[in-house]
Nucleic acid binder design. Structure first.
Length: 268
DNA sequence: AACAGCACCTGTAGGC
DNA sequence: TGCCTACAGGTGCTGT
């Protein structure tokens, strides 16, 4: 799934739909819509796209009425203007605008979710701060009491948003922090390194239009470039680019985690 | 609190 | 070529 850099890339391209008015919505897979899809189609019909923004990994389509539509791409979701032949088999929702242009929500694994929120409802569950500023990351990671592995904490959207499996591994590698280190045992030095590494790798990936491993594509159906610059994620069995030790893979909280046993030492 | 396990889905890669 | 298993950018639920 798209993590923050991938979602950010998509959101920037979605400025293309600003000002458009929704004519019809066709739902091909009911469960892509949270709640009643019939109601969703009524709620959004005739409304205008005011702006498209991002909160964590959520795409927020802000409507002229003040109501909001959120899109979460989960693992394989994407929003595209021109579906490929293959996309057509996995198209779940199609938005048609008054100017006859269209936007398709394509999602192989059907995990993605689209939801309409009335303006008076505070949008979204409890989400942590955005991770693009060092000071915010530092605040989010300081004073944690939990013994949970730092890797799990970085993936916890209530503590900090936007980081997924790829960038958690990359940030820990760049910071020299072992993924299993309990969050409560993070030293000030660790927090300092992470608070710089996280915004750095995320911004770097945004510049490269994100990481494309298999399914992620921008709205224009092209992939990102960041997969060519990974140091830890998916590198198990390969040589560490820093010290030449062999990158290892372990499971933490059910997620695979790759790290360098020499650069990321666990000394508790 | 925090973990494992499973659920949601489909495709792909690797072993035999 | 098959069949089978494991695994994949995420999140949320249940049970222990």
């Amino acid at each position: 799934m798209p993590e923050l850099p991938e979602v950010e890339t998509v959101v920037r391209e979605l400025s293309e739909i600003e000002g458009k008015t929704v004519k019809t919505t066709s739902v091909l897979w009911d469960r892509s819509i949270e709640g009643s899809s019939k109601q969703f189609q009524k709620d959004i019909k005739g409304d205008t796209i005011k702006s498209v923004t991002r909160r964590g990994k959520y795409i927020c389509i802000n409507l002229g009425s003040g109501n909001i539509v959120t899109v979460h791409l989960r693992m394989t979701g994407k929003l595209v203007f021109k579906p490929t032949e293959k996309d057509k088999n996995y198209t779940r929702v199609v938005f048609t605008f008054k100017d006859s242009s269209m936007m398709s929500f394509v999602d192989i694994r059907k995990f993605g979710k689209i939801k309409w929120w009335p303006k008076e409802e505070a949008f979204l569950p409890k989400l942590g701060p955005e991770p693009l500023l060092s000071k915010d990351v530092k605040a989010a990671l300081s004073g944690l009491r939990t013994q949970r592995p730092v890797k799990s904490v970085l993936l916890d959207q209530q503590i900090i948003v936007g980081i997924g499996n790829i960038y958690a591994d990359e940030a820990l590698f760049l910071s020299g922090v072992h993924p299993m280190l309990p969050a409560a045992k993070l030293e000030p030095e660790h927090i300092k390194k992470l608070s710089h590494a996280i915004p750095k790798i995320l911004k770097q990936s945004i510049k490269r239009m994100g990481t494309t491993l298999s399914d992620y594509r921008t709205t224009k159906n092209i992939g990102g470039e960041n997969q060519n610059y990974l140091n830890a994620y998916g590198q198990d069995g390969l040589e560490c680019k820093t010290c030449s030790a062999t990158i290892e893979k372990i499971t933490i909280g059910g997620r695979s985690s790759c790290y360098c046993p020499q650069c990321q030492v666990l000394n508790i």
